[in-house]
């Protein structure tokens, strides 16, 4: 395991994530084991790994949806350890049974003007559907709305659990562009994907998980050109990793 390079001073507003021996055991089976990572870089941290590796469980732990059974973790700004606003986009979009714009408004903690909400919908190409029932949208549209909803909360840290799995290419493009844009504005993203191309396009560093353990954590360039572990190599070669 390689520790990524130390943060530079101008990244002091970037949230960092630190875990120490994090573990999760549910009904006797160990799903996450001894996870110790330090994420201090800006941009998008990709989490890769085969199905069942524990990727979703890890970000749910970090986001506070599941309490780990062992170890501890910390999320904070570099300057001081205060809590920071975070949001999450789920693999399966969860939308309320109301209109598109009302879904956005539901999550809005900052009492945005209607125009601001409409701009947010414009950014995900949903403005003309703003008064439609959200549950009637296509899968790609639903996920775009989910991302818009996550961003309207103005997070500093954004967790994304395979948001683009089985979406149409246009929706994938919109979502990736928004993530990049958010990164430029100082939002730290942790992004789970099965799409190696996507990981190459977005990732600044990669955490490779297998069987509930961190196999490798390195910067993206190194990971894709020269992975250290046998499992990561096999995964990148498209082999089945057990």
């Amino acid at each position: 395991m390689v520790t990524p390079k130390a943060p530079t001073s101008n990244q002091s507003e970037i949230p960092c994530i630190g875990t120490m021996n994090l573990g999760l055991t549910i009904r006797g089976s160990t799903l996450l084991n001894d996870i110790s990572i330090q994420v201090t870089t800006p941009g998008v941290t990709m989490i890769l790994g085969p199905n069942g590796a524990g990727k979703s469980l890890l970000i749910k732990c970090l986001h506070g949806l599941i309490a780990p059974t062992r170890g501890r973790f910390e999320i904070g700004l570099h300057q001081r350890g205060k809590t920071i606003p975070q949001a999450m986009v789920f693999q399966k979009p969860v939308l309320l049974r109301r209109s598109v714009i009302d879904n956005l408004q539901f999550a809005d903690r900052h009492s945005h003007q209607r125009e601001a909400l409409e701009r947010a919908l414009e950014a995900v190409s949903l403005l003309e559907k703003k008064d439609q029932p959200a549950t009637q949208l296509s899968g790609g549209e639903q996920q775009r709305l989910s991302l818009a909803r996550a961003l309207i909360t103005k997070p500093k840290l954004l967790f994304l659990d395979e948001p683009t799995a089985s979406l149409d290419p246009a929706s994938v493009l919109i979502i990736e562009q928004l993530i990049k844009q958010a990164s430029q504005q100082g939002v730290k993203s942790v992004f789970i994907s099965h799409d190696i191309g996507q990981a190459k396009r977005l990732g600044s560093d990669v955490i490779f998980l297998n069987r509930g353990q961190v196999i490798e954590h390195t910067d993206a360039a190194t990971f894709f050109t020269n992975p250290h572990s046998r499992e990561a190599k096999a995964y990148l070669d498209g082999e089945i990793v057990l």
Binding site: K60, H63, G64, L65, A87, M88, F90, V94, L96, F106, A107, T153
Partner: peptide, 10 residues
């Protein structure tokens, strides 16, 4: 069951 995690997240 459907909304629980979303509400926690938000």
């Amino acid at each position: 069951r459907e909304y629980r995690e979303l509400f926690l997240s938000l």
